[in-house]
Computed example of a mutant assay.
Amino acid sequence: MLATHTDHVPVGEGWHHEVKWDGVRVLVDVVDGRTRMLSRNGNVVTAAWPDLAEPPLGERDLLVDGEVIALNDRGIPDFRVLQHRMHVRKASDATRLAEQIPATLMVFDLLRLDGEDLTGRPLAERRRLLEGLELSETRWQVPAVYDDGQMLWDATGQQGLEGVVSKRLTSRYRFDTRSKDWLKRAHRHRGSFVVGGWRPQVGTSDRLAALLVGEPTAEGLLYRGRVGSGITGATARMLQERLAPLHLAASPFADEVPRVDALGTTWVEPVVVVDIDTHGLGYDRLRQPSFQGVRTDLTPEDLS
């Protein structure tokens, strides 16, 4: 179940409010003591998270919805920290990275328990059952909820957290549905965009230095700007390896890319989604954009 964007935090006794975590969304399915972790697009990602795959309740049957998070050097959950882990499938590499970048699973919903489907029950009841599992001493944590959404909005802004998710207490859980029973409001001007090309470092022809990104619309992929900030070293090499097989002979953008950006660009098939931070929203071009990471859990269709 996905939250709908909102420009205000709802008020009233019918809602509770949670911190909006800057991490990777997963469903975690435990059957007979074996864990399967699924990304938003249904891929099995268990191998990437060996530190979270051990079920804290042993062989007890359950299905939970949550967010994998890791902290940056300021102690704030940060998606960029996770990007070095989320693509790993080799067991030895995953174990090494788990020691270097420990992750936590923030469990915010309980969908099945002891073989019983809970999705038809109201959120308030699912939440009570979730809190009763007593996960506090494990790598799985149940985040706090608050009655005062405005207070949480102010506090998350002051603490540098991403924002707030507000959930209607009577809401039932619906898989693969974006619902207005769950509302999200973010402090950061961060968005997901589709890569349509890359530009090389000045003086070279083969060293990636910037991405050209666009927004999927009914008119096609519309150009939103060039992003170079945040792309250095290992990140540039990772992006270049990911984009190399996607070469196109012509621009995939539906509108015209300015010549200053198009000159020297290698065009690519528009299938890779990235997160970009920008100063200000509502502009045709991203303002002071900064690359934040590749979103393997999203597709261009998710952004439409």
Rank of each mutant, 00 (worst) to 15 (best):
M1E: 01
T6N: 06
V9R: 03
V9S: 02
V9Q: 00
P10D: 03
V11P: 02
G14E: 13
G33V: 09
G33L: 06
L38H: 08
S39P: 05
V45Q: 01
A47M: 10
P50Q: 10
P55Q: 01
P55T: 02
E59A: 15
D65F: 01
V68D: 02
A70V: 07
L71H: 11
L71G: 08
D73V: 15
G75C: 04
R85S: 02
H87F: 15
K90M: 13
A91H: 14
Q100K: 12
I101A: 07
A103H: 08
M106W: 09
V107R: 02
F108K: 12
F108T: 04
D114T: 04
E116F: 11
G120V: 13
P122I: 05
L123D: 00
L130V: 13
G132S: 15
E134M: 13
E134R: 15
E137G: 08
V142L: 02
P143R: 11
G149Y: 04
Q150W: 11
Q150I: 13
W153H: 14
R168I: 09
Y173N: 00
F175L: 12
S179P: 08
K180L: 12
L183A: 03
K184N: 00
R188I: 05
F193W: 14
V194Q: 00
P200D: 02
A209S: 15
A210D: 06
L211H: 01
L212G: 04
T217V: 11
G220I: 05
G220E: 10
G220W: 01
L221F: 07
L222V: 14
Y223H: 12
G225I: 05
G225T: 09
R226E: 10
V227F: 04
G228D: 07
L239S: 10
R242S: 04
A244P: 07
L248H: 09
V260P: 04
T265D: 10
V268I: 09
V272W: 01
D275H: 07
T278H: 14
V294T: 14
T296P: 05
D297H: 14
D297Q: 10
T299Y: 03
